[in-house]
Design a protein around this nucleic acid. Structure first.
Length: 912
RNA sequence: GGGCGCGUAGCUCAGCGGUAGAGCACUGCUUUCACACGGCAGGGGUCACAGGUUCAAACCCUGUCGCGCCCA
């Protein structure tokens, strides 16, 4: 074996072996009767590349899947991607521009979609290859894409059914409009960005019933002067005494000339601005509601690019007289951007003396979530909506009554809050890439929602009584509409497939909290509605991987660490282990490469333990029974191994990946390597030619058993670590099981191996060696010096144990010879281990003043500890109220400390 | 403004009623035949602060300060 494991050269080969053997395939015939375990991957974007969040997310899923596969379950980890409507369309449009090809509109819909598919085949889905490099054990043969035929069928069926159930409808409402892309976007794709701006105070002239100026003004404060062209009212709070008299009066909207009312509505906040606020129902979500309450007109002053559009704008022109001002506005403002319009309007208002004041003001402005550069415009359009409120009810109930469980539990609060306040879900997008809405319109605008054009024509025939030509709705559906079906559409729904039957509901969805709204809630709604059953039993919410300041990693911020760089540098196993060990619930991960390096070292440690086993010819024995080992050391490690198996398995099952990883780490390094292998060395050692046989060659049976035990425990370790470090463990497994694959092997089982006696004996030995090393170091005994050890007045048990491990003790503590007495030799350094005194006769070697100081320090430490305990034990309340075992424990500790202290004091006295 | 969470060793973080922990970094010793990506030993903490509950608080409660995230 090489001195270190080289991930670079091995990972690819191992991945290929997994792939060839098809070990990740669900539905293995030998597991037909095994319980199923299923996870659907949260589908990454087809445009996406692997970032740290994916690395964490998929590492955790892979740990679960590999663990359950080893445990014998029939595992389906369903991979795939979503089509990312907006992102993909943008990518392809950008590429067309870069290659100086005709743009989308010139190409036309059909040709453009061909380009998108071509792009998808060629460069889409890079992320899946990257997941494979991480070792993700998905069933790659079942890869799905939201635009696949089957999944598209599911989308159509869901749309049609929800429409017929009245849960999908068309409505004219305000949406978040992206003027650049000219499409509606979800409110989840809008980021409110704090922006420094101004509050403009405009004077609106109050008019009488005849429309003549009264000479008074009402002053409104606004953050968006340009929308005043679409004002439909001025609102004041009903209880606001300042404006009591003006309620019900009208004002003449400056520049436009429209007569609009002063209305009373509690939306107006008397504390803000002047307490009077202009109402623009077509360009503000709150104003929209106010407008509905007061039956105000909705005057949309922008076009799809958010440029002023007033000429031929019926809503705007309605009721306007031919005032000169309106004429200027109509002609000069046409086509102005929002920013230009703002400047012009403020200037015109100032010219007319209608600006009271302008104050600096910080407020939130809606931006597009991805680029954070485009300002989103609330825009009045016809769109398709899902009645999310109705679908949310069962989704809420399912979590409330525990059919689906959040881990950690507190995330359910986020889920509840969102679903309880859910708004109608706008699902139509003015894009071409996506599932085109299955709705057809007749000449009179009557809509037919059917699964196919033929069905729509049949419906039209019935409706009109004659064949009628129909036009299909051009819009496509929100990508999340299809992602919401993912847990069952990928399993073949709407067909009643065996997979659907076997794997739905899935066991767990693993995702980040930022996705609770996007996926979890919507998958819950759709799963419950269409299958009558939750899509997953557990929702494990993991941390976000952040940068060192705790900010989200993002491309625009440039603070991303590329996981693949780390994979190249340290290996996929090291990265995976790092992420797992840091996946503690409730805290975000701040990743440091040092940590990854540390786990790379761990991998090397494991590798070298295996190398040690190889050098010492520790081969697996087929008939080896860990329950039957007779050497104490072996009994001990078997007991420890059983504990480790238990601890790691349990931790994975309760999603404590950090505990599982850390338990494995400690067991391998601090138990197996640091102690077991070191203690086993004398037992493994064979006599070199010419070397004295005396005391040195262990008996052959013990040696044989130890070899077998080393091999056995190492084999267990490799299995235990496999979910975390699949590559290095697979490579090590290949050495002991040629031709087999660890990924398809079994999780270790080891029960009934507790051995208190062996654990006590090895515990004593470990404590003794540690103490001896410690005192040697403190006394500056040269590391290479072999010194005699005198055991003073030990119990029969301790004497037996010491003799039992004599060689080991000599080796690990560098002891030259052992002696047993009842009296400590003069001029010796003394330590107390489990009530037995050990003396190192070091006269002439060490400085006794140092020893005296050491003893004094130790004594005073014991004294203060003992005092603390004494204070407790002297407290009547403590004795009366603390549990008996706690009291007893403290008594014992005090006794031990006092006894030890006495012995040390005796040792100190001997130095005079 | 509402919600969630965090302040524990120089750094990154576990622990969440009963003897303060890990990894990394640091210091000393160590190239002894698995591993220097190693071994051995060691230093380092009024567990943010102030009250309270309790026989007992890093841990539970209240408040304060600081920090982060989500939603408005």
């Amino acid at each position: 074996m090489e001195k270190t494991f080289d991930p670079q050269s091995v990972e690819g080969k191992i991945a290929a072996r997994w792939e060839e053997a098809g070990v990740f395939r669900a539905g293995r015939t030998d597991r037909a009767n095994a319980p199923a375990f299923c996870i659907v991957i949260p589908p990454p974007n087809v445009t996406g590349t692997l970032h740290m969040g994916h690395a964490l997310n998929n590492t955790l899923q892979d740990i679960l899947c590999r663990y359950e596969r080893l445990r014998g379950r029939d595992v389906l980890w369903q991979p795939g991607m979503d089509h990312a409507g907006i992102a993909t369309q943008m990518v392809v449009e950008r590429r067309l521009a870069e290659h100086k090809e005709p743009d989308r509109r010139t190409l036309g819909r059909e040709k453009f979609l061909e380009k998108v598919w071509a792009w998808k085949e060629e460069s889409g889905g890079a992320i899946l290859a990257q997941l494979k490099r991480l070792g993700a054990s998905c069933d790659w043969s079942r890869e799905r894409f939201t635009m696949d035929e089957g999944l598209s069928r599911a989308v159509v069926k869901v749309f049609v059914q929800l429409y017929k159930e009245g849960l999908i409808y068309k409505d004219k409402r305000l949406v978040n409009w992206h003027p650049g892309l000219q499409t509606a976007i979800s409110d989840l794709e809008v980021a409110q960005v704090e922006t420094k701006s101004f509050l403009w105070y405009f004077k609106y002239p109050v008019v009488d019933e005849m429309g003549a100026d009264t000479g008074t003004f009402i002053i409104v404060a606004t953050t968006r002067p340009e929308t005043m062209l679409g004002d439909a009212a001025v609102a004041v709070h009903p209880d606001d005494e300042r404006y009591k008299d003006l309620q019900g009066c009208n004002v003449r909207l400056p520049l436009v000339g429209r007569i609009i009312p002063i209305i009373a509505d509690a939306y107006s906040d008397p504390e803000k601005g002047t307490g009077a606020v202009k109402i623009t129902p077509a360009h503000d979500f709150n104003d929209f509601e106010v407008g509905r309450r007061h039956n105000l007109p909705q005057i949309n002053i922008f076009d799809a690019e958010a440029k002023l559009s007033l000429q031929e704008n019926e809503d705007f022109l309605l009721g306007l007289d031919d005032s000169i001002e309106a004429g200027i506005v109509l002609d000069d403002f046409e086509g102005l951007s929002r920013e230009e319009a703002r400047t012009r309007i403020v200037a015109m208002m100032e010219e007319r003396g209608l600006v009271e004041k302008i104050e600096p003001h910080v407020h939130m402005v809606p931006h597009d979530e991805k680029s954070k550069s485009v300002i989103i415009e609330p825009f009045l359009t016809d769109q398709w909506y899902v009645d999310a409120k109705t679908l949310a009810r069962p989704a809420l109930a399912a979590v409330r009554d525990g059919r689906t469980r959040f881990v950690p539990k507190n995330w359910e609060k986020t889920y509840f809050d969102w679903l309880e306040n859910i708004q109608p879900w706008c699902i139509s997008r003015q894009l071409w890439w996506g599932h085109q809405i299955p709705a057809w319109y007749g000449p009179d605008g009557h809509v037919f929602v059917e699964a196919s054009e033929t069905d729509a024509e049949i419906a039209a025939l019935a409706h009109y009584g004659a064949p009628t030509s129909l036009i299909r709705d051009e819009d496509v559906l929100d990508t999340w509409f299809s992602s919401a079906l993912w847990p069952f559409s990928t399993l073949g729904w709407p067909e009643e497939t065996p997979e659907l039957k076997r794997y739905y509901p899935t066991n767990v969805l693993v995702t980040g909290f930022d996705i609770i709204f996007f996926w979890v809630a919507r998958m819950m709604m759709m799963g419950l509605h269409f299958l009558g059953e939750v899509p997953f039993r557990d929702v494990y919410i993991h941390a976000l991987v952040r940068d060192e300041k705790g900010a989200k990693m993002s491309k625009t911020k440039g603070n991303v660490i590329d996981p693949l760089n780390l994979v190249e540098q340290y290996g996929a196993d090291a990265l995976r282990f790092t992420l797992a060990s840091m996946a503690a619930p409730g805290r975000d991960i701040k990743l440091s490469t040092q940590r990854v390096e540390g786990y790379r070292n761990f991998m090397t440690k494991l590798w070298n333990a295996a190398r040690f086993a190889e050098v010492n010819r520790c081969g697996l024995k087929p008939d080896f029974d860990p329950h039957k080992v007779v050497v104490t050391l072996n009994q001990w490690i078997v007991a420890e191994t059983a504990q480790a198996i238990e601890a790691i398995g349990t931790a994975i099952e309760i999603y404590r990946f950090d505990d599982a990883a850390n338990a494995a780490y400690r067991f391998v390094w601090n138990v197996f390597c640091d102690w077991y292998l070191e203690l086993a060395k004398p037992l493994l050692q064979t006599r070199e030619a010419g070397e004295s046989a005396e005391n040195f060659v262990p008996d052959a049976a013990a040696s044989e058993e130890t070899r077998a035990t080393v091999a056995y425990v190492l084999d267990v370790i490799v299995r235990l670590l496999h979910p975390f470090m699949p590559f290095v463990t697979e490579e090590l497994f290949a050495q002991s099981h040629p031709g087999e694959l660890l990924a398809a092997a079994d999780w270790p089982r080891l029960l009934g191996c507790a051995n208190p006696q062996a654990q006590a004996e090895i515990g004593f030995l470990v404590a003794l060696v540690s103490e001896l090393r410690s005192v040697r170091s403190e006394m500056n005994v040269p590391a290479s010096a072999q010194i005699p050890l005198v055991v003073v007045g030990a119990s029969q048990e301790h004497i037996a144990q010491i003799l039992h491990s004599e060689e080991t003790l000599k080796r690990l503590a560098r002891v030259s010879e052992l002696a047993f007495t009842t009296e400590a030799p003069p001029q010796s350094v003394q330590i107390i281990v489990q009530q037995t005194t050990f003396a190192l006769p070091l006269a002439g070697v060490i400085d006794f003043d140092v020893e005296k100081r050491r003893l004094a320090k130790e004594i005073s430490k014991l004294e203060s500890e003992a005092q603390k305990i004494a204070a407790k034990l002297d407290n009547a309340d403590f004795l009366a109220r603390a549990p008996e075992e706690v009291v007893e424990e403290n008594r014992e500790r005090r006794e031990e400390m006092l006894a030890k202290k006495e012995k040390l004091e005796a040792a100190l006295r001997r130095f005079g």
